[in-house]
Amino acid sequence: MTPKIDKRTKRKIASISGKIVAYAILVLMAIIFIFPFVYALGVSFNNPSSASFTWLPTGTIDIGSYYKFFVEADANGIPVWRAFLNTILYVTPPIIVGVLCSAMAAYGFARVDFKGKQIVFYIMLATMVIPGIITMVPSFLLFQDVYHWDNTPWPLIVPGMFGSAMTMFFLYQYFRTLPKELEEAAEIDGMSKFGVFFKIILPLSTPAIITQIILSFNGCYNDYMGPLLYVNGEPSMRTMQLLIVSTQASNNSPYPLMMAASIVGLIPTLILYLACQKYFTEGIAMTGMK
């Protein structure tokens, strides 16, 4: 009897110590993941015109960097609120209309039968492997020479409004998991495919749609290359990312100011992510890769 209990106790100790080690690793990693943000916050509360800085709290909180970023921003050519408004104006149409177009196409491919569907679908999937860099300069020249969109934000807004193959594919995988019976019942009741899509499929797919909206918001909001190519020449059209970058000059890195700008720039994505966090992880899991 005694050795049996010993064995069991031993195993229990092993499993408990295993758990302790696992959680120690996870907590350590969590600290490593959060620390840079805490550090940035600490540095941002330093005097922006001093060469030295410390990330540890010193008792006094110097909001000079934030003041400089918000109030003395004229040196950057554009005030913060304007850059933020620009960004929101540029990213909203591609997100809302773009995700809707992607969802429509996804539903068409997933649930409507028509000739030629398969070949178009596979071509669209194949385009996902094409590296974006190939079309970057040609698109730039097209927008400039053919559409005469140079120094306007249209190249940042219009292409995204048609949706993307990536988003379409994620939603396609999600729509395939929905039960068919609901749609069939609605169609027997005389509802058209469009009615089914807008009244049944979209409401059923809230987590997946929200996931895609967050992903495209992050992508558009954080985009740096696009605004740099298309609107950087016109200070009043600049975006948040261009404004953040402009806090650093060559051979001059005012870290407190750079940190203040970075943190202000992070807030919108962070709020959106935390607000929709529940939907988000659910959506990723359900549209997960196969």
């Binding site: 429509m104 491919f109 039968d113 669209m124 094409i130 193959a165 495919k193």
Partner: peptide
């Protein structure tokens, strides 16, 4: 269905032709 299907995929298809 065929008409509906092509309408559903039309925006994405047009976008990909124009911008890709």
């Amino acid at each position: 269905d065929a008409i509906a299907g092509w309408i559903f995929i039309a925006p994405l298809l047009i976008g990909m032709l124009l911008f890709l």
